[in-house]
Design a protein around this nucleic acid. Structure first.
Length: 585
RNA sequence: GCCUCCUUAGCUUAGUGGUAAAGCUUAUGUUUUGUAAACAUAUGACGGCAGUUCGAUUCUGCCAGGAGGCUCCA
């Protein structure tokens, strides 16, 4: 990357956005520019076009930009009066709306001019566009609502980016290309991990045996680890009476993301969008003593959310997913230690999966809003306690975190563990939530030392999140070359000629007995072709067996990284693979 | 849901207002090989429904599915 500061880069891109607007207005005089901010890796500008444009028009606009920039020796701002501003932008209702707002807030109204293009703008520009805007590219077109509100008009957004030099631009474009190859949807298809079917439905992945193997390994890992840490793994039904979610209070908040109720006999049932109330019913099935707290109920819980069709995406956004869920019932005093323990588990799980703290993931403290009684349950004091507890825990755990106002659940604040995917977009992977509302709603209590009934606190948490989403992160993280313990096929046996198939079978049996996921390639293909196929499937170990190996009862080991070939005894190889599996490397 | 784009064989891609080409895959035969693709032959597709047209895979509309975007505030 270049040595220029982020501020310079932002100014450069912002000026480039102006240039884009100028070119668009020149080519499409009826287009109305609205706003054009800088974003993480570039900029965009939203326009209202009288006739829709398409991606094919971008090169034309780029060419116009290159032409216009030659006359952009400078870019100069000046403040103008409200009257003058209204006059200048009389034909653009979007700018007028912005001008009105500025006037109301009593902020100065500025315009910036370059060549013969003027735009309402707060500033933040480079000085000499002609010399500095050299390497830019328009990337895509998208629809976007005016001010992000779907009730407003849909505008046309043009995305672009700009770098100080052509080399840096090329480098960035290469990165984008690379990201495409890492996309879990592409790798999932190439490696045959999962598929979608029109007949089954959108957002409902079907896992092949290979994909299911990865899932199973993840599930086994998390269940074993949780049981080790004192969780009780339970199973509850993935559907329940609508009434349950009305009592929990989820219903009004989740109504538009739940599947519609189904009537059967006298009951009205619904596919569950979350597990909490089910676990509450288990908790309530018997009187609970303080001696048993904290009580941790965990489940690999299938759940259903009706996500808007445009929001579905591969395995990261699906309509049915399996959450590694748990609810911990504890006293207020135990809450902090309990949450600390949970963070500890999450850190451990992330480490095993290979996610690096601070690099692959970070913590978000999602807070409520005391003024918003509609979105959040009203209990200011409880919110304070809960938010402070979470903040203290994060500080104590030395976890890198940032605070996000207005992102809490309706029943309490939460810690979200945010993972970045290939395209740099952040998604919530796991969460820890502090809940003081449900215990009231469901009357969740325990008997204390003095025989008195007390209310519990519920910690909602997920250790490795939704299995589907976590798989997507893993696929992208490893580019499909999973660590041995997760690899659908751990070893591929490649006989050199057909006469070696029998020895291959012998090796296969020994590895199968040792619980290694192994396949024997008996096809009448050349050894080279078989190696290539195994390589493309990213199988960690290939065992080449021919006359020499058969005679010496060995296997020639090739790793997917290439090279590293040597013949070792079968037993020795088995031990090595088993060690890989056990150490989860 | 909304905006833009995309949909040709199992996969990846070519192409056309007169029903289509290739590579890989698959099947069969030949080959029996020492670390990333042996050779030959064969099978196989214009997402669905309408419309325009003498004629549509190609143009238009609708539907379905997919991709990107709809949080970044002049």
């Amino acid at each position: 990357m270049s040595k220029v500061s982020q501020e310079y880069l932002n100014n450069l891109r912002h000026s480039c956005a102006h240039l884009l607007a100028a070119a668009v207005v020149k080519l499409y005089p009826s287009a109305k520019p609205t706003i054009g901010p800088v974003i993480e890796n570039g900029f965009y500008y939203d326009f209202e076009f009288s006739k829709p444009i398409s991606e094919e028009d971008l090169p034309k606009i780029e060419a116009e930009m290159a032409k216009l920039v030659q006359k952009w020796g400078s870019i100069e701002g000046k403040e103008i009066s409200l009257y003058e501003a209204k006059e200048k932008f009389a034909k653009n209702p979007y700018k007028l709306e912005l001008i009105e707002e500025l006037a109301q807030k009593d902020e100065p109204i500025m315009i910036y001019r370059s060549g013969d293009f003027e735009d309402l703008c707060r500033g933040g520009h480079i000085e000499k566009p002609f010399q500095e805007i050299k390497a830019f590219k328009l990337l895509s077109i998208a629809g976007a609502y005016w001010r992000g509100d779907e009730k407003n008009k849909m505008l046309t957004r043009i995305y672009g980016t700009c770098f100080p030099t052509q080399e840096e631009l090329d480098e960035y474009l290469k990165q984008l290309e690379e990201a495409k190859n890492r996309d879990h949807r592409k790798i999932g298809k190439d490696l045959g991990l999962f598929v979608f079917s029109d007949l089954v439905g959108k957002g409902l992945p079907l896992f092949t045996a290979k994909g299911a193997t990865i899932r199973r390994e993840l599930e086994r890992f998390v269940v074993d680890e949780e049981i080790k840490r004192g969780y009780q793994h339970v199973v509850t039904p993935p559907l329940a009476k609508t009434e349950l979610y009305k009592v929990s209070g989820h219903y009004p908040y989740y109504a538009n993301t739940m599947y519609p109720p189904m009537r059967i006999d006298e009951e009205e049932l619904i596919l569950r969008p979350m597990t909490c109330p089910h676990h509450f019913m288990l908790y309530k099935s018997q009187p609970q003593s303080y001696k048993d707290l904290p009580l941790k109920l965990a489940e690999l819980s299938p759940q259903f959310r009706y996500e808007k069709s445009g929001e579905l995406s591969g395995l990261t956004r699906v309509r049915m997913f399996c959450l590694a869920d748990a609810h911990i019932f504890c006293t207020v005093e135990q809450a902090k230690a309990t949450i600390l323990e949970v963070l500890n588990l999450i850190d451990y799980a992330n480490k095993v999966l290979g996610f690096v703290k601070g690099q692959d993931y970070r913590y978000r403290l999602s807070l409520g809003d005391r003024k918003d009684d509609k979105k959040y349950y009203k209990d200011d004091k409880a919110w304070e306690t809960a938010e402070n507890t979470l903040r203290e825990v994060l500080t104590e755990a030395k976890a890198p975190f940032f605070e996000a106002p207005n992102e809490a659940a309706f029943y309490g604040p939460k810690i979200d563990i945010q993972i970045k995917n290939v395209s740099g977009k952040e998604e919530t992977a796991f969460t820890v939530q502090y809940d003081f509302v449900m215990p009231k709603r469901f009357n969740l209590t325990y008997t204390d030392k003095d025989g008195k009934e007390q209310e519990v606190v519920v910690i909602h948490r997920s250790s490795i999140g939704a299995i589907e989403r976590t798989m997507a992160f893993l696929i992208e993280k490893y580019k499909g070359a999973f660590p041995v313990w997760l690899s659908p096929v751990q070893v591929q046996i490649i006989p050199i000629a057909e006469r070696h198939n029998k020895y291959g079978q012998n090796v296969l049996d020994q590895l199968l007995t040792a619980n290694i996921r192994v396949e024997l390639d008996e096809r009448a293909e050349t050894m080279q072709a078989k190696i290539r196929d195994a390589q493309m499937q990213k199988i960690p170990y290939m065992l080449i067996v021919g006359d020499r190996e058969e005679k010496e009862k060995t296997v020639a080991v090739r790793t997917r990284e290439g090279g590293n070939l040597r013949a070792i005894k079968i037993k020795e190889f088995i031990d090595k693979v088993k060690e890989d599996i056990e150490s989860r490397s």
